[in-house]
Design a binder for these strands. Sequence first.
DNA 1: TAGTATTTTGAGCGTTTGCTCAATTTGCTG
DNA 2: CAGCAAATTGAGCAAACGCTCAAAATACTA
Lengths: 202, 202
Amino acid sequence: MQARRRRVIEAALDEFADKGFEGATWRGIAGRAGVSQGLIKFYFEDKEGLWQAALLFAHEAMTADLPPPPFTQNADPGLALTAEWIRAYVRHAARHPQYFKMVMREAAAPNPRIHWAADAVRKAGHADFQRGLQLLQGRGIFSDLNPVLLQYAFLGAAHQPFLASEEIRAIYGVDATRDDMVAAHADAVVALFLGGWTGDSE
Amino acid sequence: MQARRRRVIEAALDEFADKGFEGATWRGIAGRAGVSQGLIKFYFEDKEGLWQAALLFAHEAMTADLPPPPFTQNADPGLALTAEWIRAYVRHAARHPQYFKMVMREAAAPNPRIHWAADAVRKAGHADFQRGLQLLQGRGIFSDLNPVLLQYAFLGAAHQPFLASEEIRAIYGVDATRDDMVAAHADAVVALFLGGWTGDSE
DNA sequence: TAGTATTTTGAGCGTTTGCTCAATTTGCTG
DNA sequence: CAGCAAATTGAGCAAACGCTCAAAATACTA
């Protein structure tokens, strides 16, 4: 049954995002999905394979949810279109933080997962992003900054409130995933990365 | 012996930062520190207690390493002083990423550690930061943005390249912790968060 | 140097882990 | 309904886990 397999993947996604690869357990995932451990092994080779399947699933969900990046056309994307894409990206990060949580947990120390993820999905996404950044920087926007560092600054700024939502709740008593907070954060990211240029030429 | 206890804490800091609370093991920490598992238990109550000790150690190291935040005086800090503090913060994040890695691994999902950390160290630091932000925003700098979200955007932007250094190495073949990269990222963060205002009034 | 207190070890206990596998249930086809 | 393949279970295994503890080594005092 296909629906069952999907339930397992979604449960794994939540478990890996919450607890990391080493902290996640077959029993925990089976419990979340409401199936037996044996069934997971029937669908997936091993823990590593399940992790990869979950990451691919989340990546495809993100690709499907986001508008086509204004970067991929080779023409200058324009600030308005770029701002719209950034807002959509922040909204997706807020609603589906599992993908970035999974990646970030593995990106902190050397391990086979991060190299697999780099080859399987991350390199292509980064190449798109860098192409778009090049167009914007060619226009003079933060043109003196290292594009790789700029990209990671963007990723960090966009994702952090949703990665650390439990801390925000603990310190400020606020839910960062509330609709108005998400919208406000999308505004903040646009202002930070495009704010200095919005009045210039369009 | 005090030096031995310190070696254990530093080993624990590395292990918790690399693998998270659940992924870290007594045997791994003991191996890194070059002592037996039994000795760690002699010094620290349990795994939770060792985690807390490691976080406190890293927090104190950060406090000692950073210049006094321009925020704490109630006078307007001035952009130059603020820029200098931001650069120092980024440099510390690059050289000692363990503290933020430890916090972020726990901040993703509800667990006792993040609530302990919030009360023990994070709330106070955030209050300082918010006080400083208030002064800057009173000056008109990003004054229309939610200060909590702005703080997390700053934290994410400042830390991300060093949290994800393994991914950057895997995708771009670059070492984000190299001196020149760290300096470039400090410049980038200053430009992003203060860049629009540097020419204004001082 | 003897005697006491502190530090350090490593074997081992009960539990949980990732994973196996024989057995059972379910769905499908003729 | 019979028969077969696919789906699903749960008991159980070796290894690794957090943690205990009696014994040994070291440091300190008189």
